[in-house]
Computed example of a mutant assay.
Amino acid sequence: MVPADLNVLKCCQSWVDDGYAVVLVTVLRTWGSSPRPPGSMMALREDGAVSGSVSGGCIEDDLIHEMREEGVRALCADALPALRKYGVRAEDAHRFGLPCGGTMELVLEPICGNSVLPELVEQLEQRKAVLRCLDMETGIATLGPAQSGDLPVLVEGRSFRHALGPRYRLIVIGAGELSRYFCMVASGLNFDILVCDPRKDYLVDWDLPDIPVTREMPDDVVLQANPDSRTAVVTLTHDPKLDDLALMHALQSDAFYVGALGSRSNNTRRVERLRDYFDLPQEALSRLHGPAGLYIGSKTPPEIALSILAEMIAAKNGVLLSSQPSVSEGKALLVS
């Protein structure tokens, strides 16, 4: 489960270690519509190889062409960080494939020893939130802890600040039809997803190649992941042999959301098992979202996936919801 940002940074460092000149491109600001949000990164190697993305492709093509034809100094005068805007004029927006009215500003940074990438990669691999500050006049970068309120990217004077940290993770137990819809939407919400299902038959029709699947036992997967406050665990199998042990570990972790699919009666029996056979304390049991999801009258797998994701996002964003209403109430109540 390697976050995209970390993969870009690791590519940067690997290419520099191999003797290549490399420019790190970061989306600083956007106006109107834009293909990628602020903080998105791309590594650009002197021979035109890239890792990551800052647009739908046309801006990358322009930077690649310039890098190949003229080298790093064409992008970064005096081998120092530089700013560049795309889409200011209508013809530029059309040329570079930006949506109507879209404009984006990029930071172009030549990677060197002052970029402190090895230290940054090490901290991100430890799932730390890091604030990287780049002096645009000297190219010297420093690292410090990122705070929850830090913007993804910010320019103050000639200082470029980039808050980096682990993406929110999602561990999904079960690879059935519901899981497929669940993961499709969660992927669009930028979760770093791992699906776990040791049942061979359930993996035959899995058609989401960008979402990894493991056949390890769910409890082993949860233990290895060591869920932190940016991790959610959702069980979707209805099978106690797969769900219960995974839930036991997840409920005793720092996971911000632990949910389990099933009816109210199934959930009652699940809680009893976790309490009576696994000795989970009430404090841990009270963290279980079961049945998982907000009541929206969902019947189909896509609707059920939407209801669970809505509850999960509410937990991620710190929105307090009342306990699940009965079906007769027909709605979920928001606690002010």
Rank of each mutant, 00 (worst) to 15 (best):
L134Q: 03
A90P: 00
W15I: 02
A305E: 05
L106S: 04
E216K: 07
E69T: 15
A175Q: 01
M217A: 12
F256K: 01
L178K: 02
D220H: 09
G297P: 10
G149T: 11
P81N: 09
Y168C: 08
L189V: 09
V204R: 11
V233L: 08
H289N: 12
N267F: 02
I111A: 03
A225I: 06
V319F: 08
D47N: 15
E272P: 01
L333R: 10
S14L: 12
I193D: 03
G149N: 12
Y295N: 12
P240S: 13
A315Y: 04
L9P: 01
I296S: 05
Q13C: 13
A175W: 01
K128C: 12
E109A: 10
V204T: 14
E46M: 07
L44G: 01
K316S: 07
E303T: 05
Y295F: 15
N317H: 13
D92F: 05
I296K: 00
G318T: 09
D228Q: 13
E60R: 06
R84N: 08
A43N: 04
R199H: 15
G139N: 06
G293C: 11
H289K: 15
C183V: 06
A21F: 05
R215F: 06
D61R: 10
P325G: 15
A82N: 14
G262C: 05
P118R: 08
D135G: 03
L108D: 03
